[in-house]
Design a protein around this nucleic acid. Structure first.
Length: 496
RNA sequence: GGCCCCAUCGUCUAGGGGACCAGGACGCCGGCCUCUCACGCCGGAAACACGGGUUCGAAUCCCGUUGGGGCUACCA
């Protein structure tokens, strides 16, 4: 039997970490078994569903590299793939169940049922539906519906047990006594979730339903629908919940959880995928943590999925991101960082000279970084030279208070005087001259020079820094990057 | 309330009767490297929720307790 899985989000918000993990495991399972990954939109909740969320969902999934073989935006032979476009299908099946007597009309008003529910709950009784309309004569019920009376369609739930073998949780069994005659179709004609899902999964020939653990208790209901429809249920695999640091289900109040936020914060898709895969799954080879999407597709196995809920750890995500960032070439990193640099107003047009220069800049900065945004922020040392602001920093002040610190900078400046463009050689010669003049060496030599060049007490290696700064001389940047001599001059002006 | 699920370092996890006084990773702490912050390298602290069984032997199997989560909707 061929593997067909689906990811079926509701377009009621942006794609978030929990959903992506579900999408990812479906996708990995499909890729691993050369099956099909289907994207279905569950938009039967008219009040909360919005089309722009659907588009954002698709965009984010694509950005992550989770491509789908059938579904919204790509089509396929088992469509339509949006539930609101499938109402005729639900009606057909509902009619069938009604005719077979597997389902019946219920005329009880929602408010009345709700009151009843509350009363039972307060009395410590089971809150289910009483089954009041269950014994109504079908012909009479039909006439009432015919005459325009509002009615929902309920499934006539059988007695006995419903069991299934969950691919993650193992054997699970429910007693039908616990399941009321639930609604299949609302009085406005729209399908209820448990019904629509089953009709769709049958229609789309889904072989494995892989979804959040929250649906574990819905599964027996759905199996009952399969039975009523005379279809064999698919395999089920439920995935544990992702929690926030406080142990509650991960949500917005825990900070960034939506994919677009992570993208903007400078995370790369392969890192997000990698980290999320490790949340609840582990590769067979112990200790391997950095895995490419291709590795994951090759190795993913539902048997190795953990049952217990996992806490989302942004710190570890950052570490994973750094590892993947390192694997990207400088040229790729340029593409990633350019938007951030633009946003900061540091660059504008990217000519081929600027590209080359950015590559060298990134080489100098890359090992500091966990995210693309960090990379952009680190470039501040180059683009945003403001000694009048930075010299007040305590650590910088400490450097300047050292004996001969200012003298060293002066000597360094004098050694630069006659030069036009600084090369690595002339730079080193200037450093040497400063050393000779004041006798400072090591820390006491390089720290003041660093301050003179950046206004700061920390940053990239000085050799590289000089090369980057001097390399910017002729570039058409929105604001000029002051060359070494200019920097030293400005710093000295501010010193006593 | 009823039903279902879960429980190994702070966090993600390995483990599924003897290989475990529990291994790896993130984070944390210390050291080395070094002009600085990082990176890198080396080292360290840190866990089987609790109580009963079963067994020669339990992190591992069973029962209970506690704690967390889910379902019990004309939400998905």
């Amino acid at each position: 039997m061929s593997v067909r899985v689906r990811f079926a989000p509701s377009p009621t918000g942006f794609l978030h970490v929990g959903n992506v993990r579900t999408a990812l495991f479906n996708w990995l399972f499909a890729r691993r078994h050369a099956g099909a990954f289907i994207l279905r939109i569950e938009d039967t909740d008219a009040a909360r569903s919005e089309r722009h969320f659907e588009e954002a969902l698709c965009r984010d999934l694509r950005w992550l590299g989770l491509d789908w073989d059938e579904g919204v935006q790509v089509g396929g032979e088992h469509g339509p793939y949006r539930q609101t476009d499938r109402y005729a299908l639900y009606t057909d099946q509902a009619t069938r169940l009604l005719e077979q007597g597997a389902a019946y009309h219920c005329f009880c008003p929602a408010e009345e049922l709700e009151q009843e529910r509350q009363k039972r709950l307060e009395a410590g009784l089971q809150p289910g539906y009483s089954g009041k309309c269950r014994r109504l004569d079908p012909t009479q019920a039909g006439q009432r519906v015919e005459s325009g009376e509002a009615a929902v369609l309920r499934l006539r739930v059988r007695s006995g047990k419903v069991g299934f073998e969950d691919l993650v949780f193992g054997p699970v069994e429910f007693d039908c006594e616990q399941i009321e005659d639930f609604v299949l179709r609302r009085s406005d004609g729209s399908p209820q979730y448990n019904f629509a899902v089953v009709v769709d999964d049958i229609g789309m020939k889904i072989s494995h339903v892989i979804r959040g653990e929250g649906h574990l208790s819905n599964t027996p209901r759905q199996i009952l629908v399969y039975e009523a429809l005379g279809q064999p249920p698919p395999h089920f695999a439920h995935l544990s919940t992702i929690l926030g640091p406080d142990g509650a289900k991960l949500s917005k109040r825990h900070g960034a959880t939506s994919i677009d936020e992570f993208r903007e914060a400078g995370f790369v898709p392969e890192a997000l995928i990698n980290y999320l895969a490790l949340l609840g799954w582990s590769p067979e080879e112990e200790g391997r943590e950095i895995l490419s999407p291709a590795d994951l597709c090759r190795e993913f196995d539902l048997k190795r999925v953990n049952r217990s809920p996992a806490v989302f750890d942004p710190e570890k995500l950052r570490w994973v991101n750094r590892s993947h960032l390192r694997a990207r070439s400088a040229a790729e990193l340029v593409d990633l960082v350019v938007p951030s640099l633009r946003r900061r107003g540091w660059i504008d047009q990217v000519t081929s000279e600027i590209r080359d220069w950015l590559e060298s800049l990134i080489e100098g900065l890359r090992k500091y970084l966990e995210t693309v945004e960090d990379l952009a922020a680190a470039a501040e040392v180059i683009f945003d030279f403001r000694p009048e602001r930075d010299l007040h920093n305590t650590q910088v002040q400490e450097v300047l208070r050292e004996d001969h610190a200012v003298e060293t900078i002066r000597a360094f400046q004098r050694a630069l005087d006659e030069e036009t463009a600084l090369t690595p050689e002339t730079y080193r010669a200037a450093v040497k001259a400063a050393q000779k003049a004041t006798g400072a060496r090591g820390k006491r030599l390089y720290h003041p020079i660093r301050v003179a060049l950046t206004g700061r007490s920390s940053g990239p290696e000085l050799d590289r820094l000089v090369e980057i700064v001097e390399g910017a001389r002729q570039l058409p940047l929105p604001a000029p990057v002051p060359p070494v001599r200019k920097r030293v001059e400005l710093v000295l002006e501010l010193l006593p």
